[in-house]
Amino acid sequence: MSLSEIRSSADARMAKTIDAFKAGLSKIRTGRAHTGILDHVLVEYYGSPVPISQVANVNLIDARTISVQVWEKPMAGAVEKAIRESDLGLNPIAMGDNIRVPMPALTEERRRDLTKVVRGEGEDAKVAVRNLRREANEALKKLVKDKEISEDDERRSQDEVQKLTDRYVAELDKLVSQKEAEIMTV
């Protein structure tokens, strides 16, 4: 592996960590309804677990209510059950082939708990970024050991990897603070 390959690999993997963190944040409720909250809920469809978006239209009725319009009437019960049994704490209401999902208001205590969860997820993502930095630095040390690069090149590359790490950690901090502000907004 060359220096540029090590840097680009670390950059790409750190970017994937950020994307995974953003996906995790989208699952954390803020009290406002958004269709993405049901993205990870799987429903049994002819023996296969599939996302709700593949068996129904998911729309917003208002700021606190999601509408799930199933395409096949027999699927309504399965979709309602999947939403109820998900880890989201939602209580769907079936109305024929349409399911309404009201978003319960968050209490102050629950908001504080959610900010703690967000901070914890942020720390986990930072650890992942730092582990990627460590792996990149180990790869650089291996290149020095194999006499493929000089120690000066290794130091320069380690500095670049550190700057990359700092950039991604700062982005994670920004995402955490934005989500905390969103959660604490009543």
Rank of each mutant, 00 (worst) to 15 (best):
Met1Ala: 14
Ser2Met: 07
Arg7Ile: 04
Arg7Pro: 01
Ala15Met: 14
Ala15Tyr: 10
Lys16Trp: 11
Lys16Gln: 15
Thr17Ala: 02
Asp19Phe: 05
Lys22Gly: 08
Leu25Ser: 06
Thr30Val: 04
Ala33Asp: 03
Ala33Met: 02
His34Glu: 12
Thr35Ala: 15
Leu38Ala: 06
His40Pro: 00
Tyr46His: 06
Gly47Ser: 11
Gly47Gln: 00
Gly47Lys: 06
Pro51Gly: 07
Ile52Arg: 00
Gln54Thr: 07
Ala56Ser: 08
Ile61His: 12
Arg64His: 06
Val68Thr: 00
Gln69His: 04
Pro74Phe: 10
Pro74Tyr: 01
Gly77Glu: 14
Asp87Asn: 13
Asn91Tyr: 08
Arg100Gly: 06
Pro102Glu: 13
Thr107Ile: 00
Glu109Pro: 10
Arg112Tyr: 09
Arg112Glu: 14
Thr115His: 01
Gly120Asn: 15
Gly122Glu: 00
Ala125Met: 07
Ala125Cys: 10
Ala125His: 03
Val127Gly: 07
Asn131Pro: 05
Arg134Thr: 13
Glu135Gly: 13
Glu135Pro: 07
Glu135Ile: 08
Ala136Met: 13
Asn137Ile: 03
Asn137Tyr: 09
Leu140Val: 13
Lys141Gln: 05
Val144Ile: 04
Lys145Tyr: 09
Ile149Asn: 11
Ser150Tyr: 10
Asp152Ser: 13
Asp152Lys: 13
Arg156Pro: 02
Arg156Cys: 00
Ser157Ala: 15
Gln158Arg: 12
Asp159Tyr: 12
Glu160Lys: 14
Gln162Pro: 07
Tyr168Phe: 14
Tyr168Val: 07
Glu171Ile: 04
Leu172Pro: 04
Asp173Pro: 12
Asp173Trp: 09
Lys179Ala: 04
Glu182Ala: 05
Thr185Pro: 07
